[in-house]
């Protein structure tokens, strides 16, 4: 080992290479090492209102779950006629379907290459299967205790909220899993309803609110942000109103939750950015910048 530095080392400069024998210990670095240190290169400056606007996706999803719960409660109590819900749901779905195409002038449809016939087929499949299975769904969980069903539904809806695709790029996000959990919860809850028709309409409503509504939201947010904010506010207030009619305490808590998520959390996020200290340097792992996917396959 060359542990002894050579006396006249002034000329020999240390090089950061492994393929040459140098008169320095193995763990030697010189002063230039920290010159390449950089901090917070990926940190972003957030605007408060932009963050609030982005958090509206979470608000929307929370409100969806809340509206679903409220509607189910009304159905279970017999306060809401299933026909009325079916009619409203159908009308809203048709409106949404028309809006979906109008918003971007048929751009998305052309891009995805999906025909109206396929849409009709999907709708038929939904309706037929749900209607066909609704007697089965009705008697499915008769012997299971109600508490178990409630616990399972709450668990599944929480899972739906956790795994939902809010636009973040994380490993935990799985829109498939989140949708499946929501459908599972809705089937569990629908099996508690008094009649077969109720179960059928509940599951249909679940598809509308958990599968179709987020798609429309995404498009709204992309095309008409102002309109989106209005819709979100309207949706949130209607959910709060519905909850208020059931329980005042629940409504208060839910309102607090919404406010904290949409106002407090963004504020806190921006404050926390000040303490951010990410260091980068030559010791980082190598990062492949170029897209190599064309070499694969």
């Amino acid at each position: 080992m060359c542990a002894q530095p050579v006396p006249n080392t002034t000329e020999i400069r240390w090089q950061k290479v492994l393929y040459e024998r140098q008169p320095f210990p193995d763990n030697y670095v010189d002063q230039r090492f920290l010159e390449e240190l950089r901090k917070n290169i990926h940190a972003r400056k957030y605007q408060y209102w932009a963050v609030v606007f982005e958090s509206s996706v979470v608000i929307q999803q929370l409100c969806s779950v809340c509206v679903f719960g409220v509607i189910w409660w009304y159905m279970d109590e017999g306060l809401l006629a299933p026909h009325w819900l079916l009619g409203t749901g159908l009308a809203l779905s048709l409106t949404g379907y028309v809006l979906f195409d109008l918003l971007d002038g048929g751009e998305g449809r052309r891009k995805s290459g999906r025909t109206r016939w396929a849409d009709l087929k999907s709708a038929l499949v939904f309706i037929t299967f749900t209607y066909g299975f609704s007697p089965v769904l009705k008697t499915l969980t008769e012997s299971v205790s109600t508490d178990t069903i409630y616990a399972m539904s709450v668990f599944m809806l929480l899972g739906h909220l956790i795994f939902f695709d809010y636009g973040a790029n994380a490993a935990i996000v799985s829109s498939t899993l989140s949708l499946n959990m929501a459908i599972f919860a809705s089937v569990c809850l629908a099996s508690r309803l008094p009649r077969t028709l109720h179960a059928f309409i509940m599951v249909t409503f679940a598809i509308q609110i958990f599968a179709l509504w987020p798609m429309l939201q995404k498009k709204l947010k992309a095309c008409t942000p102002r309109c989106y904010v209005g819709v979100t506010l309207l949706f949130a207030f209607s959910a709060l109103g519905g909850l208020l009619s059931i329980s005042a305490v629940g409504a208060t808590l839910f309102a607090l939750l919404l406010v904290s998520i949409s106002c407090l959390c963004p504020f806190y996020l921006i404050r926390l950015q000040l303490f951010k200290e990410n260091i980068h340097g030559p010791w980082d792992e190598a990062e492949i910048k170029e897209d190599l996917s064309r070499f694969l396959s």
Binding site: S122, F129, V136, L140, T176, L179, I183, F184, V187, A211
Partner: peptide
């Protein structure tokens, strides 16, 4: 794998039914 919406729906419906039966 990315499934279609109707595949997901029918699959989950059947899954729920099978689990409880």
């Amino acid at each position: 794998c990315s499934y279609d919406l109707d595949q997901l729906f029918i699959g989950t419906l059947l899954f729920t039914i099978l689990v409880f039966l």
